[in-house]
Design a protein around this nucleic acid. Structure first.
Length: 455
RNA sequence: GGGCAGGUGGCAGAGAGGUUAUGCGCGGGACUGCAGAUCCCGUCUACUCGGGUUCGAAUCCCGACCUGCCCUCCA
């Protein structure tokens, strides 16, 4: 397995710290609003990566945090006249609901910053004691010049950063690039007691504290959106490695940003599509397919047309899958199909092992779909088995069990409709089809009778 | 100003020195009460530009132009 590592800027063979195990940490959102499809991309990609490791037999521990105390949260809460932490927790729950809807499996641990204040304070203390950090007016700052490797992840030198950039100037900082590990609380802000007075953690420190707490000083894969490379991940490296003296993450993976009309999708620009709104119109599997169908490191141009195309792809996959199900019979498949399955499996795994190239993988998947669409009996059975095997990773097939009653009622309606059609009562026939469509059930007439798909 | 990705057919988007990407769309046919789906056939000199390397480049090298992201909160 090769993984593109942002730090070394090349694809490298993936070798976990402990054989057979993978420790992953993925930066989750700061929850001060509902999640948009930009958030869904890393969540879906890392979810599938985790499933792929498991598929290959690794034990995976995935930690994905939620930032529940931060300037943005405090400001938003002020606007809404809400209690900041409470509000953050509300949006955190809603975030998880949205991700559940997208079939993103939950991380093993979803830590929150406010639940790890002690570890954070300990880490800051260590950095102060080691001389990497200093207290200044109730704040604690990390001293960038003390960490000689600062800039290695984002491939920048500290001098260059100052050149054309706007850096927040503060007379509390010794160097404008220094960043806050601990912030003194202003009146009315959430705060915790610390050796430097009441305050709260800086943005970057929580991830260092929590990842080292759960995965040890060195983790295998650290991931997140590409916008986190600088300053967030750069600062995490500085803090963590300064404190532990060890390599913080062996591989850094960054998912390309989602854009809309050539611009980054971002709350501050206002061009966001909320996941909950999109899911009213499109099935979650279509969203997954949309992201599978693009290389994870490239920026992704979102549009409804794009989602619509993905939905069509999904319908194609589903319709082949469902028709295979109808003609499948348990037994031994022909060599032809066996070979096709083995070949496709190999192609898909090879693609995913090449820096998780889901785009290439789905191409082979679709070629397979096209070739087996007419398979019968034992061949259909094997094809289904294979698609379901792959679904451990992709999770895009229709969810199996419709409630029996529901299913029987639909069949009953379709029989009524068939009777109407036979009597040339097309008004009634079309009306039933229309009404079912409104309920999310698509009906298609085929030579073998009506077929329906629940969207 | 600096760092990093890219520029592929009507559109979306892979690939990566010589072999069909794929999907959508579009045209024709089969099927059909209609719609849809499906099948068959077809569709567009596709690879930003200019040089170079090579028997051969969309794919490698040099240069130019263009776009986006990051350098400030952001998945």
């Amino acid at each position: 397995m090769k993984i593109y590592d942002t730090l070394t800027a090349e694809k490298r063979e993936f070798i976990p710290l402990h054989e057979g195990r993978v420790g992953m940490y993925v930066c989750g959102p700061t929850t001060y609003d509902y999640a948009h499809i930009g958030h869904a991309r890393p969540a879906i990609i890392f979810d599938m990566l985790r499933r792929f490791f498991e598929y290959k037999g690794y034990d995976v521990v995935l930690i994905s945090n939620i930032t529940d105390v931060d300037d943005k949260i405090i400001n938003r809460a002020k606007e809404k006249d809400a209690e900041p932490i409470e509000m953050a927790h509300y949006y955190a729950r809603e975030y998880l609901k949205d991700m559940d809807a997208l079939r993103v499996r939950r991380a093993n641990i979803i830590p929150k910053a406010t639940r790890h204040i002690e570890e954070i304070i300990e880490l800051v203390k260590t950095l102060v004691n080691k001389g990497y950090a200093y207290e200044s007016g109730g704040d604690v700052y990390f001293s960038v010049e003390k960490f000689r490797d600062y800039g290695k992840l984002s491939h920048r030198k500290p001098e260059e950063m100052l050149a054309g950039a706007r850096v927040e100037v503060s007379d509390k900082k010794r160097n404008p690039l220094d960043f806050a590990l601990w912030k003194a609380a202003k009146p009315g802000e959430p705060s915790w007691m610390s050796p430097w007075g009441p305050g709260r953690p800086g943005w970057h420190i929580e991830c260092s504290a929590m990842s080292m707490n759960y995965l040890g000083p060195t983790l295998d894969i650290h991931g997140g959106g590409a916008d986190l490379i600088f300053p967030h991940h750069e600062n995490e490296i500085a803090q963590s490695e300064a404190a532990s003296g060890k390599v913080f993450a062996r591989y850094w993976m960054h998912v390309g940003l989602v854009r809309f009309e050539e611009e980054k999708m971002s709350k501050s620009i206002g061009n966001v599509f909320l996941i909950r709104d999109l899911l009213k119109k499109y099935p979650p599997e279509a969203v997954r397919i949309m992201y599978i169908n693009a290389h994870y490191r490239k920026p992704f141009d979102f549009s409804e047309k794009n989602l619509e195309d993905s939905r069509k792809l999904m319908e194609k996959i589903w319709s082949v899958y469902l028709s295979l199900k109808k003609s499948a019979r348990c037994g031994v498949a022909t060599d032809n199909t066996k070979n096709l399955v083995d070949k496709t499996r190999k192609e898909i795994i090879t693609a995913l092992e090449d820096d998780f190239n889901t785009r290439e993988a789905i191409r082979h998947y679709l070629e397979f779909i096209n070739k087996v669409r007419d398979a019968k009996d034992e061949d259909a059975f094997l094809a289904i088995e294979f698609l379901e095997e792959m679904d451990y990773i992709f999770d895009i097939l229709p969810r199996g069990t419709t409630e029996n009653l529901e299913e029987n009622l639909i069949k009953l309606l379709l029989r009524i409709r068939e009777r109407a059609r036979k009597n040339k009562d097309f008004g009634t026939a079309d009306w039933i089809r229309e009404e079912l469509k409104k309920l999310g059930i698509k009906v298609e007439d085929t030579k073998d009778g009506p077929r329906w798909v629940k969207l």
